[in-house]
């Protein structure tokens, strides 16, 4: 009973918050409506007994949506929604796509011959997850590791306006580096902060 109540409250809330993303004018509100939708969608994971995954989704989504807000507000016009504007573009096309997707998924839900559960869930699912990661799914983790490395490198290459040649000079010998605002981890700063006073 309690489970059903929680499920329906979260389900309706998630859909409502998802709709709100397109109904509000403000980028900030849209981002946090999306966050609310994600958090509410994470609760059913808890209902399934996947405590770790459920809380992890909440944790990750908060961090990622805050970062998302940073970019939404940087690059979208009218971030506070103080000017009247519409969040919806290409109405017909998107309506067709979303209706099509919904129909395919709904038909799938109804028509697929869902398998019966075989065996019982492990007593500690988090432990089982860890074992799977360290055992049968190790390759996944390694590939993701390299993927993340590539993400870091490409993000820096694509987004950072200055590179090492701007900072250290063409022969990479300039010390300290020439930055508009100095940081804290280079030889000069570290000596002054951790070294003896003048």
């Amino acid at each position: 009973m309690a489970q059903a109540v929680v499920f329906w409250v979260c389900a309706i809330g998630a859909v409502a918050a998802g709709l709100a993303v397109f109904r509000v004018d403000s980028m900030a509100r849209a981002t946090f409506a999306l966050l609310a939708s994600f958090v509410l969608a994470a609760v059913p994971l808890l209902l399934l007994g996947l405590s770790y995954l459920g809380i992890l989704v909440i944790l990750m989504m908060i961090m990622e949506m805050v970062v998302m807000a940073v970019f939404m507000i940087m690059y979208m016009m009218n971030p506070a929604g103080l000017m009247p504007m519409s969040m919806v573009h290409n109405k017909k096309g998107s309506l067709a796509i979303s209706t099509g997707t919904f129909v395919v998924l709904a038909v799938g839900v109804l028509l697929v011959d869902w398998p019966q559960r075989q065996g019982v869930p492990p007593p500690d699912v988090t432990f089982a997850l860890g074992e799977a990661l360290m055992g049968s799914h190790m390759l996944v983790m390694l590939v993701i590791g390299l993927g993340l490395f590539a993400t870091i490198v490409s993000a820096v290459v694509l987004s950072h306006p200055r590179g090492r040649y701007d900072r250290f000079g063409d022969d990479l010998r300039r010390r300290p580096p020439d930055d508009p605002i100095p940081g804290s981890v280079d030889a000069r700063s570290l000596t002054r902060i951790f070294g003896v006073g003048r």
Partner: peptide
Amino acid sequence: RYHVRWYTITMVFLA
């Protein structure tokens, strides 16, 4: 449109 000065950090963080 707030000009964040550390957008590269956000990407490195997410990864």
